[in-house]
């Protein structure tokens, strides 16, 4: 006689998402930087933006900012990022 247990775990299956295709080069691309609004994040991202433009010839850098790092990005921020159709998004931590 096998012993029976009630499964106490979350049983919802998460659909696996394949990573987006990698960019072969950054040159001439449109990138977006998502600032999660941690202290010092904008300082770090300003330098990153400069490096992307000068060293990697990125054509355009879009900036978006979450209102708080403690919560997932609200629909408005995600919607603006998606509708801008950048070639890649860098979600940036800080501290």
């Amino acid at each position: 006689m096998p012993q029976v247990l009630v499964n106490p775990m979350n049983e919802a299956a998460a659909a696996a998402q394949a990573p987006a295709p990698r960019l072969a080069s950054l040159e001439g691309r449109r990138l977006a930087l998502l600032d999660i609004s941690k202290p010092g994040g904008s300082v770090f991202l300003d330098h990153l933006e400069q490096a992307l433009r000068e060293r990697y010839q990125v054509a355009e850098v879009l900036r978006e900012r979450k209102p708080t790092f403690t919560k997932p990005a609200p629909a408005g921020v995600l919607g603006r990022l998606i509708s801008a159709k950048p070639d890649a998004v860098i979600e940036a931590l800080a501290d």
């Binding site: 006689m1 096998p2 012993q3 029976v4 247990l5 009630v6 499964n7 106490p8 049983e11």
Partner: peptide
């Protein structure tokens, strides 16, 4: 939601 599944363990 769904009812929880059952887990069977060998004796």
């Amino acid at each position: 939601g769904k009812r929880a599944s059952h887990i069977l363990l060998e004796d």
